[in-house]
Computed example of a mutant assay.
Amino acid sequence: MANQYYLMSQLPAIDSYDSKALPISEQYFRDLCSRFLDSKSLKILENLSLEPPRQEIKTGSDFLDKWNDRERCLRLALAQIRAVKMKKESLILPGSCTQDIMQAARTAVGMDSPLAAEEFLNQYRLETLDAMQPLDNFSVDAVYAYAVRLLLCQRMKKFDRETGKVSYRKIYDEILGETT
């Protein structure tokens, strides 16, 4: 635990992705972790992804297993709601899919702007992460929670309104069979 204390005390706060630049890069974070975490924890961190596998696979961390379960449920709920809207067959949701996940998915799918939906879902994810935050701020799970927050914020910083509009229009026109 002493190692995680020194690690967490060196990490800057990541409040949101709205500012120009994040206070830490993923590479610097990983380098810092490599100095303080054991090989098992580093391996778990190395395999961390914002896109959990469709089938439940244990990560070696109860915290990340719970995070992956909620994220998997959210993605499957989004897919199910979109499939129903398109009158297509949908997957059966796992029993761990809660009402708040379903409501978040319904809200996002109902939005007119894909960017607004992504921003809403990201905010939902950050709030979920806050609710799951380990009580011990210096545990290895706190390091994993920080890593998830960093990845979520990095992902949202990649979104660009104008590039998204051009891409959306291109895909929309291709679907309708129109060429530009």
Rank of each mutant, 00 (worst) to 15 (best):
Q4Y: 14
A13P: 01
A13V: 12
S19Y: 04
A21Q: 14
S25P: 07
Y28T: 15
S34N: 13
L37N: 10
S39F: 10
L42I: 01
L42K: 05
I44V: 15
I44H: 03
I44G: 03
E46G: 05
L48Q: 15
I57F: 06
D62G: 11
F63R: 01
N68I: 02
N68T: 02
D69P: 02
D69K: 04
R70C: 14
R70V: 12
L76F: 03
A77C: 03
A77N: 00
L78N: 00
Q80H: 07
M86H: 09
K87N: 10
K88P: 09
K88Q: 15
L93D: 03
P94I: 10
G95Y: 00
C97M: 14
C97Y: 15
Q99A: 13
I101M: 11
Q103M: 14
A104V: 03
A104I: 01
M111E: 12
D112I: 08
D112G: 07
L115K: 00
L115R: 03
L115G: 00
E118T: 04
E119I: 10
N122R: 01
T128W: 09
L129A: 08
Q133Y: 06
S139N: 03
S139R: 00
V140A: 15
V140T: 13
A142V: 08
V143P: 00
Y146N: 01
Y146S: 01
V148H: 00
V148L: 01
L152I: 08
Q154G: 09
K157G: 06
R161G: 09
E162H: 06
S167D: 14
R169A: 09
R169F: 03
I175H: 00
T180N: 13
